[in-house]
Design a protein around this nucleic acid. Structure first.
Lengths: 232, 232
DNA sequence: CGCGAGCTTGACGTTGTTCAACTAGAGTGG
DNA sequence: CCACTCTAGTTGAACAACGTCAAGCTCGCG
């Protein structure tokens, strides 16, 4: 990691800058920009580790990441999966200083790391901006909470349906997509065994509700999927 | 509800005022105080309803409340249970304007309702105060997240152990307490059937790890309970 | 060509839900 | 004052869902 970061990639088209510009002057944004490091992460790389000290607010410019929790016995659990552009600072800014989970790239990512403390200090006099950022970054917590509710109330087929719908609507933003997640990762998201994921997916495939060809997935009948999500 | 609220009960000893005083002048606090309504809720009463428009930040002065989610089929699920003093504004301030869950008194409660919008406006120029409030109110989200993880990884006996420990440490703040929750409410917290709660509790009782006499509960062996929480 | 990772399928045992029956206490009304 | 009812708690049995295990498959890569 370099002391002096490279100039920000595609900085003008940046969603983070757009939000910031509503509340900060060009000079003020420049201060934040100077405490920012831009990095590239390959699929599978860890951006920060569960248990480590939280030092940066993460802005996910492009790519897909998972929030991974590992318990004492080494079992993994995916709390949420999000695609850029998105501010991922929430958990670190608000919770204690230790990361509750790991952040791991599911696809190649362009990421900006913004120093936690310096960032917070710079924002002290910008209540409205702070509020806007909180709103943006807190949105993420909706997913674990709804996933939680889904887990508590539904059987596996309902949860799998939920996950396919969520990935289609919020991550890949298309009803036809390359499923970069492995079956095991899906099982860690749905909190079930990977065999169960496979069985459920092929059942959905046979019934024609989705079409699976290797990694490629197409949703044929959104309504039926939503039915299963509801009554599963 | 009256237009002009009664003077705040026990206002000097108030945790909310203590936090506020670090960042606001007496005059500024007085403005917030003027947009605050203090109310009493009886055990079982609903403070706000899932699906309704969120209009107030809730400050729980005294008492215990549950965050209740009800799905389409009428099944209830308790996301978290907290005791006062605590700021419960998070969910309404940050999420969309509609309540994701209902807030229901588990024991009699003293509550202050602070108008959402007016409150936010008053805070715009107080970044540090805003940040402190966010930290306080976001803390609540840790519980659903850890409950979520517990749910995903553990069997019922582990989750029940978790819940007893949580109630003892964070809600009743004693290893001996009157369990005001019904078995059904515990089952809604643990996401299992109420029969399963009963069976698990009486097993813990028979093994001497806890002592149950009607509503009264005493933890005899915290370490064994933590063992069960871990390996269950 | 061989190896390993990811994927798939079926058999089997465990866990937990559902259902049904029973008990105890609290509230209600004749 | 005694049935009646309603709610909360309790227990056990039958059944379904799900995880685990084992075996075999395919594909990409060294």
């Amino acid at each position: 990691m370099f002391e002096n970061p490279l100039p920000l990639y595609n900085c003008d088209a940046c969603f983070f800058k757009t939000i910031s510009s509503l509340h900060l002057s060009a000079d003020e944004f420049d201060i934040i920009r100077k405490m920012t490091t831009q990095l590239h992460f390959e699929k599978g790389e860890t951006i920060f580790k569960q248990g480590a000290k939280a030092t940066h607010v993460v802005f996910l410019h492009k790519g897909i990441v998972k929030f991974n929790y590992q318990n004492e016995t080494g079992k993994n659990f995916i709390m949420t999966i999000v695609s850029g552009p998105k501010i991922l600072g929430g958990a670190n800014l608000f919770f204690k200083e230790i990361n509750v989970f790991s952040l791991i790239a599911v696809e190649n990512c362009e990421i900006c790391l913004i120093d936690n403390i310096a960032f917070a200090n710079a924002l002290m006099n910008h209540g409205a901006y702070l509020m806007a950022l909180f709103r943006e970054s807190i949105e993420m917590f909706q997913v674990p909470i709804f996933n939680f509710i889904s887990l508590a109330h539904k059987q596996v087929n309902g949860r799998i349906a939920d996950i396919i719908l969520y990935l289609s609507e919020n991550v890949y933003k298309n009803n036809e997509f390359q499923l970069t997640l492995t079956r095991k990762e899906i099982s860690e998201f749905a909190a079930c065994s990977h065999e169960n994921v496979i069985t459920t997916l092929s059942k959905l495939n046979k019934e024609g509700i989705i079409t699976l060809e290797g990694k490629h997935c197409r949703i044929n009948d959104v309504n039926k999927l939503k039915e299963i999500s509801k009554h599963g």
